[in-house]
Design a binder for these strands. Structure first.
Lengths: 198, 198
DNA sequence: CCTAGAATTCAACGTATGAGGAAATCTACA
DNA sequence: TGTAGATTTCCTCATACGTTGAATTCTAGG
């Protein structure tokens, strides 16, 4: 019984702040905004709840600090969009499905879940998507209707995340990645390169 | 001060049960599952919280009892799918956007919001979508890959709801219905009638 | 008219939450 | 070495929640 928690700073360099952020990231992703509690995050980080508040101020600020895309849009999107325009839809689809089949799924699901449950979280997500994702696509596309194209692409991705990983509607949830890529690539291709009206 | 609430049954025929269901519908739609409280529903229905429990048993049962699509899939979907196959994408898009521009928006947003926030709600929604929507489309389509087609259509619709009405990402949220219809009709057309791979 | 049961309220319980203040222990720099 | 500031805990407050049990008033059927 030497592990009784005692007040006061612990010996050594503190990595606690990061531990809290990590735990918060996992929990927001898994549980959404409402069901994630400061106390739960503190428990997972093996820390007193007051410390979470001490570092991040409030639950909302914690969320805002922890919301992140599992990739850097500024790096990834230009790479996807440059190159042969005839293949851009497939490249895009492959990337999206790839993220959802990897460690990135958690973060994506978390974003969507949180955006759906808490107004403040929705605003954080809107800001994130608008500035970093849509903005980047618009720059690369350059056309007049690029913002609409970009947001329709975003809607498609969000729909996938919801249907496949949040609601888990069958058979979509059980569809093989390659089949999925085949099925959605043309949509991205059209949204990114072909005329929108007609 | 004659309106003090007194215990005991009120005179006349009781419509309270419906009032509670209505209030619950509105609140689940507006707030999602977690942020909707039995107490809040009771307040809106001008009723004691215990009465909500008396009628519906628990919050989860209340939700399950109140979840509904703002249209009857068994009536609407066959109508949309029969007729000229060359136009089915546009008919579908027009219908979906129409629902989202009308009173049906509330219910759709509620379904999506709730599905994102509560596991039990997600299951209710999955059940609803699988059996009543996807099932109907599959019957009308008849092909082998109809289930996948139907769930991709569902994903597209959910993505629209999320992006346009829950997160409200611009410019999608501000796009005119007609422009939107033009933009998404080809996606539905392809998902419903054209080859999925290739 | 009587009574079984439905509708309705009140009060309460146990639990959880986000947050603040005060105290304790440590690090880091002068 | 001393001390300002950072890190950490404990205790507490005010709220809110879902749910239960008992009491009260009404309706409906015999």
């Amino acid at each position: 019984m030497t592990d009784a928690a005692r007040p006061g700073r612990r010996p050594g360099t503190s990595t606690t702040r990061d531990a809290i952020a990590d735990a918060a990231g996992r929990q927001f992703a898994e549980l959404g905004y409402d069901r994630t509690t400061i106390r739960g995050v503190a428990r997972e980080a093996a820390v007193d709840p007051a410390l979470v508040v001490h570092f991040f101020g409030s639950k909302q600020q914690l969320f805002a600090h922890v919301v992140e895309l599992p990739f850097d849009p500024a790096v990834v999107l230009p790479q996807l969009l440059e190159g042969d325009r005839a293949d851009v839809g497939r490249r895009f689809a492959t990337f999206v499905v790839g993220v959802l089949e990897s460690d990135g799924r958690e973060a994506m699901v978390g974003l969507v879940r949180a955006a759906a449950s808490e107004p403040a979280a929705a605003e954080a997500v809107r800001e994130l998507v608008t500035r970093r994702v849509i903005g980047t696509i618009v720059t690369a596309l350059g056309s007049d209707d690029a913002p609409l194209r970009a947001s329709l692409v975003g809607a498609q991705v969000v729909g996938l995340v919801m249907a496949r990983h949040v609601v888990a509607v069958e058979p979509l949830a059980a569809t093989a990645p390659d089949t999925l890529i085949d099925a959605i690539a043309p949509t991205f291709q059209r949204l990114l390169t072909e005329p929108l009206t007609g």
